[in-house]
Design a protein around this nucleic acid. Structure first.
Lengths: 206, 206, 206, 206
DNA sequence: CGTTAACCGAGACGGTACGTCTGGTCTTTAA
DNA sequence: TTAAAGACCAGACGTACCGTCTCGGTTAACG
């Protein structure tokens, strides 16, 4: 059993939270553009060094903020694949919509979402982290679909991995590129459409 | 008919091209990060004013560069929907891959693609322009699918608009988020998967 | 004949003066410690970059300020060597006293004078410049003394260079090290003392 | 009789010396610029607190280092004033030269000497201490000269205090301002020059 | 053929944020 | 109480880059 011996003054956990809170407020209110290290530090009542000790870059802090915004989406295991997907993708859509509108006019602009994606391209470590997150999310979605295949509810000549990319991809396509809304009506339409021709009719439960 | 009367010294058309050439080189070689107005102007042998007279913003110039990189993808009208889609999406994928690798290590980073998307979020006009481009592209893809429906080759309970988003979305999802490659093998897999259960078997041509 | 061709927007001479004025005020009021680039820039109504375009370093700006404070000391050519020296060294002493008391308590602290000397040690170019100034000043003083030797008013076995160092050195010794005042009474005492035994009695003018 | 009762962990006397040693090395090797509290503490294997418990300020530590470098200059009492002065001023010059060249190129830069003088201006207590040291040194020199006057070897219309300032001042003038060397040749020249016209020829010892 | 309006190169300028550095203090656990 | 370790506050520094401006000078088309 490994016991890490702590030496020196411990990190002020309170500071972490004050910083994240201030950063979240700043990012959501003003968008990435007006999100400033100096301002966040001041709002959190913290020295800039304290902030930089935790996040090496403005981009890293922003990423932490965004990570903190996402609730863990619980994945159910019901027999109703369509409902399951609606719920899962609906949660993703909600998070994206919130972030997209952070601090900017209500046109179709990708806003902060795009900035965060760009950030993952500016720092290799952020990129790895982000991709790991997406891999995890993918695994969840794929699991959902695979289970349906195994249970005989979904055609087995479908590739769950690719199918999930079609679903998630459509959402991001709208947010980042076409600018169209991704409300729950759309999510339902998307799921229904993607499952067309793939569902295997189930016999009445005896 | 309106004729705008030009007075004074005419624009140096040569400059436009020198700037674009220099900018393209810079953007592709060094990525968005090292893409600098001063550096581009110097490389083009042009004053910054000359540059700003043509593009109001670094982002606008970058957008022009990217626009110049994309070939118009011709849309065919053959009876083979799958081949058609493979070709169309393959062209898009090729363009994206080239841009994604501009000036950065060959990890899965979204690189310049993401920066350009972010740029559309920073300037309303670029956003409108970009979304118009995507609308046009969508229209092409949707047309392709609609024609297949009309011809009885594709189930008519499918929503062509959404289906196309599933296809294009999957590509962008890989480029921007999951970082996985989008080579032609993937494109084929994607198209085949998306059409599973949707194609209507055709009788033998008599 | 060399004609320098001016290209580009010319420097704003006004800015130079506003900066120097603000800097002088700041340095004299608050001493080197509170002398801050940001503050000076703000007070001068100038961007920091404008300031850094002219002086590469805070130390350089401070040096410029000090250089601007020193009046050119006119060197006379009268027959009265003692009076001449009193006047010359008195001017130097006055400048030093003013600077020494810039923004600090009236103890014997060397204050800003020492900081400026230290600055010449931090930047090779400032050092060269400063030493050139001192060389010039020395030349003046030495000239004064040499003329007296030539005129038969000063013993010719004296080394004018070293003698001048004794005079100027005593002033700086007081300012920088012992902290004692260098008012005009002291200057007179110093000059008289240094000339003791060296002056050659002159016959009555016929 | 007062006995201070010490409780708790006793000071580590070893630490004082390790710190001073590390500080001396750092100051002499890298000059004042690279002389850093963190670095010294690390090199001494000591916590910053331990260091600050002993010296309240970086400047104070530096001053302690410099104080430790200076040997006490023994003052003789021979009949040969010139030799006496040569020896006394020579010792001072040697100390200054060593410090001036600490960690910097061999130009005429005042280097660490100037920084230390500036330090005396930043902290009133260091100033007082330093000036007390100089007063003591002055007293020694003045004593030397006064004895010569009393013994009839030096003209009695000379002011020993001012004369000593001329001598010491010339050394510091070279080190701090003009940047010229102060080797023993110069010291001899200086002393000889300062005494010119002041020495009273002594009759042959009977 | 001179005027005029727009262009061009060069480079200074305002503005703003970034990330760094370092001094000196504070808070832990351990001796 | 001291020590080691290291977090913390504070505040200035110098840099980078954007987009604007001001020069001197050029180049057509207009009148």
């Amino acid at each position: 059993m490994v016991v890490t011996v702590r030496r020196g003054r411990p990190r002020n956990v309170d500071a972490d939270q004050r910083i994240l809170a201030a950063a979240t407020r700043s990012l959501l209110d003003g968008g990435y553009h007006r999100f400033t290290i100096d301002e966040v530090a001041a709002a959190a009542g913290v020295a800039k060094t304290t902030l930089y000790r935790r996040w090496p870059t403005k981009d890293h802090l922003a990423a932490a903020v965004v990570a903190g915004l996402q609730d863990d989406v619980p994945v159910g295991d019901s027999a109703d694949l369509e409902a399951e997907l609606n719920s899962y993708l609906g949660a993703i859509a909600a998070g994206l919509t919130a972030l997209r509108d952070a601090g900017n006019a209500d046109d179709g602009s990708p806003g902060t979402v795009a900035e965060m994606v760009a950030a993952t391209g500016r720092h290799a470590d952020l990129g790895r982290l982000s991709r790991a997150q997406f891999a995890k999310r993918n695994a969840q979605g794929i699991g959902m679909l695979s289970r349906a295949v195994d249970a005989g509810r979904l055609r087995d000549d479908v590739d769950p991995g690719v199918l999930f990319e079609q679903l998630a991809g459509a959402l991001y396509y709208r947010v980042l590129l076409s600018g169209e809304p991704i409300d729950s009506a759309y999510v339902h339409r998307l799921v229904r459409n993607a499952l067309t021709g793939l569902l295997i009719p189930q016999g009445e439960p005896t």
